[in-house]
């Protein structure tokens, strides 16, 4: 799940996880954020770095750089001595935390481990891993890692790891990107910048675009509807504010149209565009869990079986 911060990536990621779990897959949703969002929606304590099961077959975890380092060196490579003496040393940890990109590399390495190695090493198997990519750089940086790493003149284990990672990302059977967008001006611009960037990095178009907080179905687009005039007449003091809210909703509808228009001109992404209704327009005010469950039903109708 790539996309601008605040677009609702976590909600869509959780909804996708619910959808996969309902279809019988073992699904893991990976966050890399603070504070952790998804597990608390299900009434659970934050999962932290170790995945917990939220509902049957739906798991969640929140990536931690230091934990990953420890697992990689101690658990995966069996190099406890190297980890304790070298990696965990103050100087090397400073290097790792300060050097840009290292955290992203290890994040991807962790994903590879979860996808490919966890079954053999610790007996955990996930059929689906949904990644709530970090908002920084829209998550596109994750897919750009292989080409970045190629410039590093890597040897030893890191070369092996990065080659495997590049293969996983390049394989359309194993990896796909979905962009979460908002019907707001800046967010649409960013989405339209992100799509070609992802396509370059992946070597193929993202699977689709999900427009969150859509009001398209509810708003006719009429600029001064009679009902708004009646509402304003009943609350004269609030008239400018009511008009302001209406203008905001009209704008959202227009921005969504812009996005559809722009995407229609581009080569169509695999699944096209799915609009998710603004949660505040739902018949009853819902908690986050109900909202993502409703999203999961929309996704279920959208995703091929």
């Amino acid at each position: 799940m790539a996309g601008k911060g605040g677009a609702g990536r976590s909600s869509v990621a959780a909804a996708l996880g619910i959808c996969f779990a309902a279809r019988g897959d073992n699904a893991l949703v990976v966050e890399w954020t603070h504070p952790e969002a998804i597990a608390p929606w299900f009434g659970k304590p934050p999962a932290g770095h170790q995945a917990i099961e939220l509902v049957p077959r739906l798991w969640a975890m929140n990536y931690s750089l230091d934990e990953t380092l420890r697992e990689y060196f101690v658990g995966h490579l069996g190099m406890r001595l190297l980890h304790d003496r070298v990696i965990a040393s103050r100087h090397v940890r400073r290097l790792i935390h300060a050097a840009p990109g290292i955290a992203e590399l290890l994040f991807c390495g962790r994903l590879f481990w979860l996808a490919e190695l966890a079954r053999d090493e610790v007996g955990i198997h996930y059929d689906r891993i949904v990644i709530d990519a970090p908002a920084t750089g829209h998550g596109a940086a994750l897919f750009e890692l292989p080409s970045t790493l190629a410039a590093f003149d890597l040897g030893g284990l890191l070369r092996l790891e990065s080659t495997r990672l590049a293969r996983m990302l390049a394989d359309p059977e194993r990896t796909g990107a979905v962009v979460v967008a908002l019907p707001e001006e800046l967010a649409i611009e960013e989405t339209l910048e992100l799509l070609p960037r992802l396509e370059r990095a992946l070597g193929r178009a993202p699977l689709g675009v999900i427009v969150n907080h859509s009001v398209d179905r509810f708003v006719s687009g009429e600029e001064s509807p009679a009902w708004l005039a009646r509402l304003e007449a009943s609350r004269p003091a609030s008239s400018p504010a009511l008009r302001g809210v209406h203008v905001e909703l009209l704008g959202r509808k227009a921005r969504e149209r812009d996005l559809h228009h722009a995407l229609a001109g581009a080569e169509a992404p695999g699944l096209g565009v799915l609009s998710m209704d603004e949660a505040l327009l739902a018949p009853e005010a819902d908690g986050a869990r109900r909202i993502v469950e409703r999203m999961a039903r929309d996704l279920d109708g959208w995703l091929p079986r």
Partner: peptide
């Protein structure tokens, strides 16, 4: 704004679905 911040004070609209959705949004 403060005058709309109390959702319950917004009257139920008559008629069209769009108006009802709008008020539902405001209250939410």
């Amino acid at each position: 704004p403060p005058e709309l911040a109390d959702g319950e004070a917004i009257p139920d609209p008559e008629g069209e679905g769009e108006a009802r959705a709008f008020v539902r949004y405001l209250r939410g």
